[in-house]
Computed example of a mutant assay.
Amino acid sequence: MMVTRRLDEEAVALQRQGVLPAYAPVRGQEAAQIGSAAALDRTRDFAFPTYRELGAAVALGVDPVAYMAMHLNIWHGGLYDPNVARLAPPNAVVGGPVLHAVGWAMGAKLDGTGGAALTYFGDGASSQGDVHEAMNFAGAYHLPVVFFCQNNGWAISLPTGHQVAGGSVAARAAGYGIEGLRVDGNDVTAVFEATRAALERGRAGGGPTVIEAMTYRLGPHSTSDDPSRYRSAEEERLRAEQDPITRAMRSVSAEEIADAEEHAAAVVRKTTAGLHAMQPPPADELFSFVYREPTAALLDQHRAWKESQDA
């Protein structure tokens, strides 16, 4: 959690310096992400993130430089191997990874591997039709998938209470005939236990689960957002008192905290150096990974692009 917090702070600083074009901060949601990702069985499960799951990437051992390559705009989706990490490429389509997770879960059920999918989305994304379709499909086919909603209180600038009818994402699960529960998203142990139980249930044939982790986005929605325009400083102060890292620190020694800070600082230094050293890929790779076998139209476009570069 400390590594995620310090990497997140560094990413915001790098964006302000013009190194990263944009970034979606995760401050305040570390427990929800790390607790859930840590529950995965990396020999058979698979996670499907949004564009804000730095904590999940850290928990799954993804090289931060390879992950942050996405934010550096070097490579769409990062430079890590998803099959090794068991983490799909970050997905910036609102609600998009939920559909992918359900498709993967259907495949896992059909081939009998016994794995389960874990998919992330926010309270705002829960209003997308894609999410409802995914839950209905998963319920109808009894698929091994955990829908993990990080309810951070705000759908960008709209409070959850104004855009989630009924006030609960977890309660929607009943409409699809699947399990649903709320968990304290700032308690890393509670998140881990809830997610582990849901994954085990899915692997055992018990079907899908919706977990609504109640947390709070302490920072802006993105580095182009100004939360002071839609929420008060008093609200932020009160919610900061529930900071998941502050809570976790209460159960460990001062020596352990110091060790964690030292380790996090080393990771940040290495990551920053790696990002500064990273070079853009060859421009014609734009045409290299579109189709397994390039179409005539794509080859024509590639040829025209090369001619324009030589002109």
Rank of each mutant, 00 (worst) to 15 (best):
L99S: 13
L99F: 08
H100Y: 12
H100M: 14
A101V: 13
A101Y: 02
V102N: 03
A105M: 03
M106K: 04
G107M: 04
G107V: 10
G107Y: 06
A108H: 08
A108Y: 05
K109D: 04
K109E: 06
L110Y: 06
L110A: 12
D111A: 03
D111W: 03
D111R: 09
G112C: 06
T113M: 02
T113I: 05
T113Y: 00
G114P: 04
G114E: 04
G115W: 05
A116E: 11
A116R: 07
L118I: 08
L118G: 06
L118T: 02
T119R: 04
F121P: 00
F121S: 01
G122E: 08
D123A: 03
G124S: 07
A125Y: 00
S126Y: 02
S126T: 07
S127R: 11
S127W: 00
S127H: 06
G129T: 05
G129H: 08
D130H: 02
D130T: 05
H132I: 00
E133C: 00
E133T: 00
A134T: 01
A134S: 14
A134W: 01
M135K: 03
F137C: 09
A138C: 09
A138F: 01
A138D: 00
G139A: 12
G139C: 13
H142M: 06
H142C: 09
P144S: 15
F147T: 02
N151Q: 10
N152Q: 12
G153F: 14
G153E: 10
W154G: 05
W154T: 14
W154S: 08
A155P: 06
A155G: 09
I156L: 13
I156M: 13
S157V: 07
S157W: 09
S157Q: 11
P159M: 05
P159V: 15
G161Q: 09
Q163W: 02
Q163V: 11
Q163S: 14
V164H: 07
A165F: 13
A165K: 11
G166T: 14
G166P: 15
G166Q: 10
G167V: 15
G167I: 13
S168V: 13
S168T: 14
V169K: 04
V169W: 10
V169N: 05
V169R: 05
A171K: 09
R172W: 10
R172G: 07
A173R: 06
A173Y: 12
G175P: 10
Y176R: 07
G177D: 14
G177Y: 11
G177I: 08
I178E: 07
E179W: 08
